[in-house]
Design a protein around this nucleic acid. Sequence first.
DNA 1: GACTGCTCTTGACCAAGATCAACTCGAGAA
DNA 2: TTCTCGAGTTGATCTTGGTCAAGAGCAGTC
Lengths: 273, 273
Amino acid sequence: MMFQGERGRMSMPDIPTGNLRALFNEARCQTCSLSSLCLPLALEFPDMDEFNAIIRRRTPLKKGETLLLQDSPFTSLYAVRSGSLKQVTTEGSGEDQLTNFYLPSELVGLDGIDEVRYPGSVIALETTTVCEIPFDRLDALSQEIPELRSQLFRTMSKEMRDDRRMMRLLSRKTADQRLASFFVSLSGRFRRRGYSPYSFRLSMSRADIGNYLGLAVETVSRILNRFQQQTLVAVSGREVNILDLDTLCRVADEKVVDSPGVCQPISAGQSRC
Amino acid sequence: MMFQGERGRMSMPDIPTGNLRALFNEARCQTCSLSSLCLPLALEFPDMDEFNAIIRRRTPLKKGETLLLQDSPFTSLYAVRSGSLKQVTTEGSGEDQLTNFYLPSELVGLDGIDEVRYPGSVIALETTTVCEIPFDRLDALSQEIPELRSQLFRTMSKEMRDDRRMMRLLSRKTADQRLASFFVSLSGRFRRRGYSPYSFRLSMSRADIGNYLGLAVETVSRILNRFQQQTLVAVSGREVNILDLDTLCRVADEKVVDSPGVCQPISAGQSRC
DNA sequence: GACTGCTCTTGACCAAGATCAACTCGAGAA
DNA sequence: TTCTCGAGTTGATCTTGGTCAAGAGCAGTC
């Protein structure tokens, strides 16, 4: 009943050369494989060194461990090196809301800058390594290095646009469209990081996906099943094979109207890069 | 059937001394009544002058006029001086999504920084005046004035948190809770600007509210009606009187469980300040 | 291996809110 | 004043996806 994709898969991003080496030898922005996606992407040699100097490496987090606790004092941003995390916000008497997934090269904590405290807990979904960037040092450095400041502005601005896109998803899209959007977006994020956009392993549970997309777990499950019957994807547990990215992409943006060319799956602007 | 509030109302924010005077005499940050809320809020005398120098005043927009067209080249941020605007994004083949309302002292355009183009159109909901802040000049100035840079970071960070709150609203809250949240939030924004938090005029249509909150116009209408019967608010056309902010606030966060003290209507962190 | 919790799936039912349709209201124009 | 048109309201019906309940699958542990 389930189709187990046999193509060479790649698990959720991890540093090719292994964690230990990454931590001790390669723990420098200059040689980091993510440098072209990460915060210092615009920096040249001497500036890069300065930036590298303020970074603190952390020991890897295990699955389920907490990087940040909601309402703990804001001190640093964190760049994801490998693995993945989720941001969860508990507000009022309501249940948690999963507001974001973070993948390698993404920046955690930007939404805490103007408060004294972090607005949500951030939890590792698998073994995860991060670089800590003390914000006061970063702020100071961003005064000396205009490119760094610009990059920070750009990153925040991008995240705001992604939020708006998410708002549209939550207020206008059907359950099918949401799931499709989710896969298309994930696929793009993997592609941009050099991983297969067609074959990957989800590090988050169905419950997480549902929470993030504003759907019940059961709905996620049902629709995944339907997608499978329509041979859009092949899902086995958390292994995902995207079989028809094109249709998926068309489903994501609109009803399944056949309007070819409307969708550009490789679009640079496609969600949380 | 309708209760027309008789208390002294204040219309949507407008500069007390009138538009003309505002435009020509008072068009300086130093004397602007919004300076304590606006971008230069952290600046002292000489810096404030420098900031003031890069601002361009614009002739007032009439209701329905477009400040920014989606996809037009990004050049400037805009600070609202008086009136109000809405941001509308058209994406894919779908209908418009209203992503934000802007009130005086708020900053329009932050989500366009990292793209060459604005991600949405921004349209005046009533007669509205704005200050144009060319971004390249602001960026340059933010290098010289650390307080300005910090303030920019803070503003963006705050907007991100508001977006997350909106995401929670859209994915978890019932229609009643959404409307209640909307009123509580508006009320707080008025209060912070020195206007009555209980009595104001909506500058947006029911359709706008529905679009923003992810609800059909009919639903907005029905629930407004219900709120009225519960004497939470008194609505007559676009005139709003909030009769029971406390309950409204309690409804906003959760089901109408009676858990007193949970809600802090005056909370500083309450949405788009 | 069997046990213990989970995560995930599947089915049956229900309800919140969308949609469709008709009608009212109110502001501006002639 | 009356006309017109868009905004808002109200009612009837339908649909999507939530909720409840039960069972299957799977991973870690003893």
